[in-house]
Design a protein around this nucleic acid. Structure first.
Length: 549
DNA sequence: GCCGTTTTCGGCCCGACTGTTTTCAGTCG
């Protein structure tokens, strides 16, 4: 039993309580206990055995008993009891925007609504309208939300596609009838949101392969002579493209797309490898990430794209000091294990209350904690930073006195998302005027498949960033991937430098530098455009020069 | 439900926004 499993169960209990209990603090108590468990330094099993659980702040009599039961038996009778009171899948309703646990609790207890279909029916029939607290506008909003949730059902974040594709490819490798298999389509192009997973299979015995597809995916159906469709994980469509080995390269190129790119390519000669297809067409090879537009094919000069191995370190890393899930020690040691030359720690600033933003005193404690652990990770260097809020008027959270003492400052918008384009642009431009600001974090605040970002005038921001030497973050968190790769070339024109940052809230989320690198490649960036390909000395020198100017 | 106390009950992380209200509740970040 590990602490994260315990925390997940406590979170689930918290959600059930919020559905039915009018006292919001009871649900929050379980949530708090979940966070306390996640942040435990000691092994949870040892802690329970030694009776030390009662000394953990945020864990009391009731939550302590639940935790103990989970650790000892793997389950919780209390949670089972709660689960039994509601239909399974009721939390799917959370996918509808503006519908929270309180309202879900009401629609279930009053109308028995426990699925998106039932919710839509209740909205259309007018039953929803009759409930206390639900007016015409709420009904309208919910109907829109239902449509949004349905639309999202058929779209997936890139890592889902990567994982499904790789797992199937690995299993295909065990098939004797298969000579080669490769993921193609939008997953291979590393598009941030995908609709399906495409896999090209080279085989001389297509019938034998088809007979075994149902071992890999459900609901197998034939689309045409060489294409079969199935469903992975109960929701992700997978397309299998069967090819004779001599045509593997041509089919790979055609099914990788994009449609526009393939059309621009013209006649695709039959070939075993993709590089041969390019050769036969007398065209220079184009990396899959760069195959979105016709221009990608026609471009005369091709930069060498940045690679993950070029990154010597990274910035934008949270710890348990604010809303991260791993301690300073864990985050530093995980960065060290990745072989990085440096890492930049940046917890939230005070205005981000909901994320546990650091008061000036806590910031000092954080620095003391860095000092305690940085020798253990030497020679890796630890840079002291912050992810500071850009306030509504464009000034920075924390005063210049604090900001000027830090190695770097990531300036991010976390509030008042609904400002209009000009206001929001002015707000960010003003932040860039602050000499202490080093990076602009997640430029539009978007959450893929969840919410639109705020709108900004890219041209004005890139121009200023170029002039002021402020770097634009490529936030590699797969939910964000913000800056959008479609705008990168315009920033390059203004001489902007980028930083591939993970926005890591746990050691696992350091992997966001991988997705971030894909975005940089899609935007056509080389190592020279990326700040965190620089050596530790170059980085330190740059930070020092910012303070001197 | 948890915490802390001038110890056994009152407060709990804040602000903006929206819709439903006529003074507030729910959602979101």
């Amino acid at each position: 039993m590990d602490k994260f499993t315990v925390a997940r169960m406590l979170d689930e209990i918290s959600r059930y309580i919020e559905l039915s209990d009018p006292n919001p603090f009871k649900a929050r108590a379980f949530e708090k206990a979940a966070r306390a468990v996640e942040n435990l330094e000691e092994d949870i099993v040892t802690l329970v055995e030694s009776g030390g659980l009662k000394d953990v702040s945020g864990v009391g009599k009731a939550t302590g008993q639940v935790i103990e039961e989970i650790v000892r038996t793997g389950g919780s009778p209390y949670l089972e009891e709660l689960r039994a009171q509601y239909p399974p899948g009721i939390f799917e309703l959370l996918r509808v925007p503006h519908l929270g646990l309180k309202k879900i609790g009401v629609v279930y207890s009053e109308l028995g609504v426990a699925s998106i279909d039932q919710l839509e029916e209740a909205a259309r029939s007018g039953a929803l309208n009759k409930l206390k607290g639900f007016g015409a506008k709420t009904t309208e909003q919910i109907l829109k939300g239902v449509a949004f949730a349905r639309m999202r059902e058929s779209q997936f974040l890139l890592p889902v596609g990567i994982e499904v594709g790789e797992l199937i490819r690995e299993r295909l490798a065990d098939f004797d009838e298969i000579e080669d298999a490769e993921v193609s389509g939008s997953v291979r192009r590393r598009l941030e949101v995908i609709r399906n997973v495409n896999i090209v299979v080279a085989t001389k015995k297509p019938e034998a392969v088809v007979a075994r597809l149902s071992d890999l995916v459900a609901d197998v159906e034939q689309l045409d002579d060489t294409t079969y469709r199935g469903v992975a994980r109960g929701e992700v469509p997978v397309l299998f493209h069967l090819a004779a080995p001599a045509e593997f390269g041509s089919v790979l190129l055609r099914t990788t797309g994009s449609e526009e790119f393939v059309e621009a390519f013209g006649k695709i000669a039959k070939a075993k490898s993709e590089t041969d297809v390019f050769k036969k067409a007398d065209l220079a090879y184009v990396e899959p990430e760069r195959r979105e537009n016709a221009e990608d094919l026609q471009r005369k000069t091709r930069r060498k794209l940045v690679e993950l191995a070029n990154l010597r370190g990274t910035f934008h890393v949270h710890t348990t000091f604010s809303d991260g899930r791993n301690s300073m020690q864990e985050m530093l040691s995980a960065a060290h294990q990745r072989g990085w030359e440096y890492v930049g720690i940046s917890d939230h600033s005070p205005t981000a209350y909901y994320a546990g933003g650091l008061s000036p005193e806590r910031l000092k404690e954080q620095h003391a904690e860095i000092r305690r652990h940085e020798r253990d990770v030497a020679p890796m260097r630890v840079f002291r930073g912050t992810e500071a809020d850009i306030l509504q008027d464009g000034t920075m959270d924390y005063g210049p006195k604090i900001l000027s003492k830090l190695d770097f400052v990531i300036a991010s918008v976390h509030s008042n998302f609904k400002m209009d384009k000009d206001e929001m642009t002015d707000r960010i431009l003003r932040a860039m005027d602050d000499p202490n600001v080093t990076f602009i974090g997640h430029l539009t605040g978007r959450k893929l498949l969840a919410r639109e970002g705020y709108t900004v005038e890219y041209e004005r921001i890139f121009e200023k960033a170029g002039q002021r030497g402020v770097m634009i973050e490529i936030n590699g968190n797969p939910n964000r991937l913000d800056l959008d790769w479609r705008h990168i070339h315009r920033a390059v024109d203004h001489g902007v430098t980028f930083s591939i940052n993970p926005d890591a809230h746990s050691i696992g989320e350091y992997n966001a530098v991988i997705t971030g690198t894909w975005v940089a490649r899609k935007g056509g960036l080389s190592a020279k455009h990326i700040f965190n390909t620089k050596t530790v000395d170059e980085v330190a020198e740059f930070f020092a020069s910012r303070h001197a100017s």
